[in-house]
Design a binder for these strands. Sequence first.
DNA 1: CATGAGAATGTAAGAGCTTACAATGTGAAA
DNA 2: TTTCACATTGTAAGCTCTTACATTCTCATG
Lengths: 338, 338
Amino acid sequence: MKANIYDVSTKAGVSIATVSRVLNGSANVSDKTREKVHAAMLELGYTPNAFARGLGLGSMNTIGIMCSDSSDTYLANAVYHLEHELRKNGYDSFLCCSGYELETKKQYLKLLLSKQVDALILVGSSFLDMTPENNQYIVDAAQQVPVMLMNAALDKPNIYSVLCDDFHAVKHATSSLIQTGHRRILFLYKSHSYSGNEKLAGYRKAFKKHQLEVDERLIQRCPKKLSENIRFIAGLYDMGLEFDAVIASEDIMAVGAVKFAKSRSLRIPDELSIVGFNNSVLAECSEPAVTSIDNRVEALSVTTVNQLMQLFAGRDVPQKIMISADLVQRATTNFPPA
Amino acid sequence: MKANIYDVSTKAGVSIATVSRVLNGSANVSDKTREKVHAAMLELGYTPNAFARGLGLGSMNTIGIMCSDSSDTYLANAVYHLEHELRKNGYDSFLCCSGYELETKKQYLKLLLSKQVDALILVGSSFLDMTPENNQYIVDAAQQVPVMLMNAALDKPNIYSVLCDDFHAVKHATSSLIQTGHRRILFLYKSHSYSGNEKLAGYRKAFKKHQLEVDERLIQRCPKKLSENIRFIAGLYDMGLEFDAVIASEDIMAVGAVKFAKSRSLRIPDELSIVGFNNSVLAECSEPAVTSIDNRVEALSVTTVNQLMQLFAGRDVPQKIMISADLVQRATTNFPPA
DNA sequence: CATGAGAATGTAAGAGCTTACAATGTGAAA
DNA sequence: TTTCACATTGTAAGCTCTTACATTCTCATG
């Protein structure tokens, strides 16, 4: 049924080695032969079997990408840019959405390794657990292939990181809020993750710099779903928690804050200033549009792939690259121009 | 370096056939042997080589998924649900983002076939060109493996479709707008695609039903990017095109319409009613939140995978399944309750 | 015309797994 | 104890390709 290399070689009247040479663009084939082979391939509708090639070659230039959830706008973007960039460099990618369970992550990582990927890219800080032994499976994987972490860092051999400077970005945004007169800044985060912690540290640092105390009640873990996070923020407000600004670790929560403000007729940004994170399309869609920290997914993705290519080329590569974030001001803050 | 099945068999003191049996969960292995083998695998950090397995088995239970652009919210969601559902059924997926160029599409489809996928899922109506010969490459692929189209239809052997009833959804929404007094309904579409045409046909049908003429100037191709589509809509308005309602084939355009209305102080929904499409999170984030047609990505994805599983089980499967859409009313329309 | 270098092609041995079939082992029934 | 059925294990061929090495061809040179 499906044609293989033997069928092609028979039809073209050459040996399979020659067909293979044509397939791989080897120089040592005469033009006439090459044409005969191409014709035979076309006629038979031949598609080389990637399994056999992979087995023979030991690799098929594919990179395993793992993220927790590709329906998340941010991760989807990252994956998109990664895939695009990889392909530009002649690599395929194999995507796995692992969800948030440790066991599934382990299992999927094993799956990727079994596919003989040449490297692994783990996207998102949700891959780093705060308990070191829960990251052991990543360290183990790094014994087989290089591992690139995007938005997370782990100081182990053969593990490289490309991340956004969330710490300074949040520190700067918080500082700007303080400078524009805000003292009660609600900090909303999604979960305890590497970048979540960085952001929080930036928040604290800004307060420290201004010699202000942090009210721990202002640091809240917030649900992601819009309807829920609106209710959550309103709940805090109704319980008497006072705040005059919000920094959210995801745009969707910032949008929630906007909706909450509207529901209570709080004026934005006068009575409530809001800063989001990721600078996704959500921030633009909101009304008023949300000021957001742009952590530059595309730059991160491109850099990640570049690092990998450097590594493959045998060059030395820094274990950790930090990219600075941009603050995109829109209508939910009135920071003075830089 | 990397352990293979021979290493395991040596270490466990059994033949490779037995190791293979353990690997594949075959029943004919004694418990004692199974344990020995497992221990050896663990000790060697053995990961089976998927290329070799695939070569031996002829297939590795993987499905090729192709979409134009996984950074698109809608497609990202579709891909997410597809992957999830496939995995539930024991299948891996291989994702390719083809972009919008015909040549790239062909090339990537070939790539997927070379990976020996057991089936292809093409997501999104952008895969069907209006020129039939440009779809030939899909028809060809269907000779090798079943092809599932999500949100598109092509009546050819071994090609199956799962789609949303965009026609009736738009017809109904348009009708509702007409019934609530609107006559000048701007129809914004992204491109000439299968579902784009269906939507437009629904629009026309509604006018016909109410014995009204369609003003062709109200049918406009609109850019997708928010900043651009706001400008585009404003441009139409400034050129003197009158409209009292908008139906957009994507939520992002509906959000653009909202932003436009605000910029001109048009009251929503009184002076301008707006209906979006996809019921994405954007529709919720907008202020006022946008009424949107929910074309039920998850249901589509689940159905697509189910169809495929039926097919693999050798059962008869309808060539085309239509799923009806929901209209989710929010603040940009005032349709009477159903 | 003989020779030799280099290009073009072919042969055959893998790559790591599955599995049909053969061989061996086990225990119950005779 | 023998025999038979069946569970367990091993042997070897096969899946499709790559590639080192061997062979053959071509043609300029002596």
